[in-house]
């Protein structure tokens, strides 16, 4: 992508065109900051964090922001889902950079800053709200295409939905240690040769232990002509006939 645009610019006679081939992932990996755009801050499915003192946040903050003063951030991280995209802002550039680094160190992969912090936001005409602050993090992941919600998957396990099949794509060893009642177990790497064992007229719900293999298997099944295939993204532990999920 970057090379295509650079090539076009060079063709138009621009003499000083360079390509940052390693791109944004290398930029981030090297400890550099990235920024969210205004629309994403205002409307994206994010956890927006106001790092300033709660009193300041009450006097004026970006709508939807959760007040987590920087000093409390470390303690509050357990309330923030690890998959959530996070945008932080403050009135101190240093504090924003520190929070960014702390969050990344803690395993959050999608972290960005509001450009210019709170001052940058208001200067750019961004809307603000006043009044008592929110401290609760309420974030729900949006399902990807082909993904089944945990609650709906549980209904399938309980047999509350008809014409369904649970497909377990873990390894044979994993499946032997426990699984969902009535599940068909075919390891991911055998889907290609054994998909004939799966009835085509039923809704298929695929699971593994995290969702990675389930997603691959459901794509594989779709390419083999299966239509109603859904996969579960959740940390899923089975022992005997007991099971539990975690996000």
């Amino acid at each position: 992508m970057s090379t295509t645009v650079a090539g076009l610019a060079a063709k138009k006679g621009y003499t000083n065109v360079r390509v940052f081939l390693d791109g944004q992932p290398a930029w981030i990996k090297d400890g550099n900051l990235v920024y969210a755009s205004k629309g994403f801050v205002a409307k994206g499915n994010i956890v927006l964090i106001d790092l300033r003192a709660s009193k300041k946040a009450a006097e004026g903050r970006i709508a939807r922001a959760v007040s987590i003063p920087y000093d409390a951030l470390e303690d509050r991280m357990e309330d923030i889902p690890v998959k959530a995209p996070i945008v932080v802002y403050s009135d101190s550039a240093e504090e924003m950079a520190d929070a960014y680094e702390d969050l990344r160190d803690e395993g959050y992969k999608k972290v960005a800053l509001v450009s210019g912090g709170f001052a940058g936001w208001t200067k750019g005409g961004g809307e603000t709200v006043t009044g008592p602050v929110d401290t609760e993090v309420n974030w729900v992941r949006k399902l990807a295409k082909g993904e089944v919600a945990q609650d709906d998957f549980i209904k399938v396990i309980k047999g509350e939905v008809t014409d369904t099949i649970i497909l377990d794509v873990r390894t044979a060893d994993e499946a032997a240690s426990g699984g969902f009642p009535g599940a068909v177990a075919i390891p991911l790497d055998e889907i290609g040769s054994r998909h004939g064992e799966i009835p085509k007229d039923k809704k298929i719900f695929v699971h593994c232990t995290t969702g990675a293999r389930a997603e691959m298997a459901s794509k594989e099944l779709k390419s083999k002509g299966f239509k109603d295939v859904f996969y579960l993204v959740a940390n899923c532990e089975c022992e005997g006939d007991k099971w539990k999920f975690e996000d």
Binding site: M1, T3, T4, V5, T15, V17, F20, G23, Q24
Partner: peptide, 30 residues
């Protein structure tokens, strides 16, 4: 933000006048 599709249509209008301006492009890695 100038995605490839946009660039193909109207990149010239989006670029600076001075042809020796440093232009750097990037994306999500190789």
């Amino acid at each position: 933000s100038i995605p490839v599709g946009v660039a193909k249509k109207n990149l010239p209008e989006l670029l600076p006048k001075e042809k020796d301006t440093l232009i750097v492009t990037y994306c999500g890695g190789p």
